[in-house]
Amino acid sequence: MIKFSILIANYNNGKYFRDCYNSLITQTYENWEVIIIDDASTDDSVEIIEAIIKQDPRFSIYHNTSNRGCGYTKRKCMKYATGELCAYLDPDDALYTDALEKTINEFNEDDIVAAYSQMMLCNENLIPDRIFGGTKQIYNSRYFFNCPTQFAHFFTFKKETYLKTSGINPNLKSAVDQDLYLKILEHGSVKYIKEPLYLYRLHSNGISQQSFKQGAKESFAKVIHDTMKRRGIRTINNKIVPEIYTNSQEIYELLNYQTYKLHRLINKVKVTFNI
């Protein structure tokens, strides 16, 4: 029976964790573990989480001695994962009760390295609002960079595939998931589950959204550039890939053609007919 490792990187989100916990203990699939790494939270997150999980041996919590950021913390989660399949879950979000079962079924049916689903956008109280519209079935090639975003949560991957990569970049503060997606997709096929399995909570939590988005945009551009270099791509659509990263605009301009209707139509045909 396949073991599933749910990986949680926490920083000051303990107040939302009860919903996350409840969604895990009610899963229809039973062989799972939860690895939690707290990134030196400055609130009472650790006390809240430890009080909730203390009677449940399926949950383990570890601590960073200082605040190291998302990339370092998510990479550290993998150090403790013992399952054949892994997926990240944010402590302020939750899963549908059949998320693990439906995901594992896809791995049992097809030779894939990863699977991803739609996600449900929710308000601060985790009340469902609408399905995130950007998630689509992708055509995976060396020129796929998930830009514009075509998939996000719920992303599940084989641990053995992750170990073939260099792993999540520990220096990243944002665009960490994008770094993971692109590295995993270089090693095999991915399956799209066309229904929401992930509940994504929308809230500010005191973060300046504008400055955060700008930082994430910059980090994503760096991730894309690193991916281009790793894949040995020197030109894209007859434009030269810069040897050294200088700014995000230069990278995004290389990918403008991927937003064109013709490009999307061609990819849709390739996906439909499995070309």
Rank of each mutant, 00 (worst) to 15 (best):
K3I: 13
I6A: 04
N12C: 15
N12H: 05
N12K: 09
N13Y: 08
Y21D: 12
N22W: 07
N22G: 10
N22M: 13
S23V: 14
E30L: 11
W32P: 04
E33R: 04
D38W: 11
S41C: 15
S41Q: 08
S45M: 13
I52K: 12
I53L: 14
Q55S: 14
F59Q: 01
R68G: 01
G71S: 07
K74P: 05
K76Q: 10
M78S: 02
K79W: 08
T82L: 02
T97C: 06
T97F: 08
E101Y: 11
E101I: 13
I112R: 03
V113N: 07
Q118W: 03
L126D: 04
I127G: 01
Y139T: 12
R142Q: 14
F145D: 14
T149M: 09
Q150V: 09
F154W: 12
T156D: 03
K164R: 15
P170N: 13
D177Y: 12
K183S: 07
K183W: 10
I184D: 07
H187V: 15
I193N: 04
Y198F: 13
Y200K: 08
H203N: 07
G206T: 09
Q210S: 11
S211M: 04
S219V: 01
H225R: 12
D226P: 00
D226E: 15
I240R: 05
I240D: 10
I251V: 15
L254T: 11
T259Y: 00
L262I: 15
R264T: 14
N274E: 10
